[in-house]
Write a protein that binds this DNA or RNA. Structure first.
Lengths: 253, 253
DNA sequence: GGCAGTGATTGATATATGTCAATAACGAAA
DNA sequence: TTTCGTTATTGACATATATCAATCACTGCC
């Protein structure tokens, strides 16, 4: 096959929010008819990102929010030493860029983990629209609030869990999110590398790898490279619930 | 002194947003005259919370956001085993409860670390007001966005830094926040116990204690119980910037 | 002013997880 | 198919930090 493409047929990508299978997860929840059309009009579909391509980079001016339609995005920071810190993975139906509203600049970089398509929602058009459409306004607040809550629960993972708990919690989080999107809760393909998982969980790659094999030998799951099948989600929940070696459950003042 | 109080003079607590020294940090940024009064009217002052008192508890229905006026609040989750995970400390001018909008229920508990007064902002009144006051709407989005961004940067601390880096980053964060509020950036009183700090940073209390003494012996700071004076913020920055023993700076896919 | 009781510090030891190094399994390209 | 480069796995060893235990220093109370 000759490398002819790169010129994408924009006409083809003509999917209204209304018909988007994600429309209950994305913005338009509780918005109907005419309002939905107004939202639809400001949303821009872009050509899909190839694996490794950036959606935006740290320091770039904030222009739009992005809703993942298919594929997966990882967001990450790079410190002075060039060290990468993965801060999150974004699956279909999830929004990227909410952290940039505050300062008008993206504090993180975002790149595609695989071929990924997103909807671009220009913020300078979305923001005034929220004044007129109460459902849209509330939904945006809800989504941001949930993002905060989920970040907080990740603190618990990073702060109190041992390596096994972290990986278990991570897999269950993916499982739940895939299930919400109508995919299988028990079998899915990891879009990210072990390195990314390790980084996200604050572990070494080797530790992640070892725990995958340990989980497998204990019959908790079966992995085949990127493919994961959860065999005993209940026990995984239990492991995810255990606190780290540390945490003596002491209460502070 | 006889233990007479407990009956607080509500009349005394009569401070409008307009005259609040925090008014640039809190909600009203970019709101003027008449609009500020409308916001002011929905805000309720409550009697101060005593040390240890709860502002709200996990699972409680969400009714209002709270702006800390003086004192300090810690938010925390409690897992099945009764283990506490401290998720944040909230200083004057900061908002508490943003994570509850999404589900209508507080995912965390919040309690006062010392005598603390807060403004209560009933959300069912605030939300419609944002439709009419663009400055208020944008400020709320900005604040939520900043919260997300700051949570993300805490991931970096928890995920990539060793114990020294975490404590250094924590102290510098407090320093910056105090400075923003007009307090000294170099000398301040820690409202929280070492146990809470340790928990927040995902470390053991003993480790935190040891690092305080190590920092002191290296001339980076001077501590006297809760009182901290930063002597060499530049070197602290350097330490906060170092990545953990772990993190081999590898990039994922 | 002495006496709990809690919070902080310090020391000795254990261990989970990181580090280094080698190999193996895959995927893409020729 | 073969080859190369990347990603994942496995093993042996090092170490940062947790754990356990004791002491110390405040704070509030009688």
């Amino acid at each position: 096959m000759p490398s002819r493409p790169k010129v994408i047929d924009i006409q083809r990508i003509k999917v209204a929010c209304r018909s988007c299978t994600l429309h209950e997860l994305c913005l338009p929840l509780g918005i109907d008819g005419e309002e939905l059309e107004r939202l639809d009009r400001i949303i821009r579909r872009r050509r899909p990102l190839e694996r490794g391509e950036h959606l935006f980079r740290r320091g770039t001016p904030f222009r739009a929010l992005y809703a993942v339609r298919s594929g997966a995005i990882k967001t990450y920071a790079v410190d002075e030493a060039g060290c990468e810190q993965v801060t999150g993975f974004h699956l279909p139906g999830e929004l990227v860029g909410l952290d940039a509203i505050g300062e008008g600049v993206h504090p993180l970089s975002a790149r595609a983990l695989e071929r990924t398509s997103v909807c671009e929602i220009p913020f300078d058009q979305l923001e005034p629209l929220t004044a007129e459409i109460p459902g849209l306004r509330r939904q945006l607040l809800r989504l941001m609030s949930r993002e905060i809550a989920s970040d907080e629960s990740h603190f618990g993972v990073l702060g109190q869990k041992g390596a096994e708990g972290r990986l278990a919690a991570f897999l269950l989080s993916l499982s739940r999110r895939y299930a919400e999107r109508g995919f299988s809760a028990l079998e899915f393909r990891l879009a990210m590398s072990r390195t990314d998982i390790a980084n996200y969980l604050g572990l070494a790659v080797e530790t992640v790898s070892r725990i995958f094999t340990r989980f497998q030998s204990e019959g908790l799951l079966r992995t085949q490279r990127k493919l994961v099948r959860l065999l005993d989600p209940a026990r995984l929940e239990a492991i995810a619930g255990e606190h780290a070696p540390a945490s003596r459950c002491g209460r502070g003042a």
